[in-house]
């Protein structure tokens, strides 16, 4: 059981998302940084789709109402458990009454808090993630607020081999980003596959897509990131019918300033698509703060699949090795 003592708005329960309902206008939703949430669950031996808490705004204070084991991944919030500083991407035991305090991260944007067993909220359309816009999923379809008490599903009782806990090598160190020689330090490099309307853009716009930085504007959230940079122009404007779109699609509205559709993005849209950020790099966007810059690197379908396999291997190996750090115990972990 976790009690929320303090939280700004927009922090909510998420799992890996809601699949199979796009045809009804319900997008994937779920964690923006799916790798961080999956890593937290891997450290705890949870179901890989167990629900955790996505933290986008800080400071956050929670109290553990019972003994449990928790994991914290994503942006480094210099978390403190009863005052003691924890390493980032870390899992450890908490005792009833202990308080966890998270500060605004200096790098990255979103952190994920998971507990052994996963957060117990009802599944709605196959997912426990919060669809805030439509008010369902998660905890009553809303963001968390002070006073909320969250229960965890029962987990197999275990103790950690090391009292000080265990950690995961953060994804930013474990999963190499694409090479991009012109990228400046701090810029987020993303692999992009050309989308259906790529050829409709003029040569200067195509070149600008790959060769110039794209600033993340303040109009960026779970729905999508609006970018600022060179105005992208098509050779001739052609009206399009709305069609299904997925997280990662880079749309170009008439302003020429691209939009990346993300977790809570629309299920359909009619803007031309110049590219799509590969699934294996979407978590990097989740950690790119407004004011920072993105770089796009052209990528083939085969390279995208290789990158996906690298993510799966990272999470699979982490899960297997973390299993050796958990010992069956007689005490019950609630």
């Amino acid at each position: 059981m976790i009690e929320i003592l303090e939280t700004p708005p927009l922090n909510a329960i998420q799992d890996l998302g809601r699949l199979g309902y796009r045809c009804h206008g319900v997008g994937r939703g779920g964690a923006m940084d799916r790798v961080a949430l999956a890593a937290a669950n891997a450290l705890l031996g949870n179901d890989e789709n167990a629900a955790g808490i996505e933290l986008q705004l800080f400071p956050v204070r929670v109290r553990f109402a019972g003994d449990t084991v928790f994991a914290l991944t994503g942006a480094d919030c210099e978390a403190r458990l009863d005052g003691r500083l924890l390493p980032p991407w870390w899992a450890m035991s908490a005792q009833a009454g202990q308080e966890l305090v998270l500060s605004p991260p200096r790098q990255g944007l979103r952190a994920y808090l998971a507990v052994a067993g996963g957060i117990d909220v009802p599944e709605v359309m196959g997912s426990r993630s919060t669809q805030m816009r439509d008010g369902f999923g998660g905890l009553d379809g809303r963001a968390l607020a002070a006073g909320d008490r969250l229960a965890a599903f029962p987990a197999p009782a275990f103790a950690l081999r090391d009292g000080a806990g265990l950690g995961a090598l953060p994804a930013s160190l474990a999963l190499a980003a694409a090479d991009c020689p012109q990228a400046q330090p701090g810029e987020t490099v993303l692999r992009v596959i050309q989308a259906a309307e790529y050829e409709q853009f003029d040569a200067a716009s195509q070149a600008a897509l790959w060769q110039t930085p794209w600033k993340v504007t303040a109009q960026s959230n779970r729905q999508g990131y609006r970018l600022a940079g060179v105005a992208l122009q098509r050779l001739e404007p052609v009206e399009m019918r709305s069609h299904g779109i997925v997280p990662g699609v880079i749309q170009v509205p008439p302003s020429g300033q691209p939009i990346i559709q993300l977790a809570d993005g629309n299920s359909a849209g009619g803007y031309p698509k110049i590219g799509v950020v590969i699934e294996a790099d979407l978590w990097r966007i989740a950690q790119a703060a407004p004011g920072s810059a993105l770089r796009f690197v052209s990528c083939t379908l085969e390279e995208a699949r290789t990158a996906e396999r690298a993510v799966a291997a990272y999470l699979g190996t982490l899960r297997r090795l973390a299993g050796y750090c958990r010992l069956p115990s007689l005490g019950k972990v609630a």
Binding site: W89, G165, L318
Partner: peptide, 20 residues
């Protein structure tokens, strides 16, 4: 440092174990 404070890590693949 306090007792139990993590002062280092030992990496085996993607897993980090504490040095406390």
């Amino acid at each position: 440092v306090e007792a139990g404070e993590v002062v280092g890590t030992i990496a085996a693949g993607p897993l980090l174990r504490p040095v406390a």
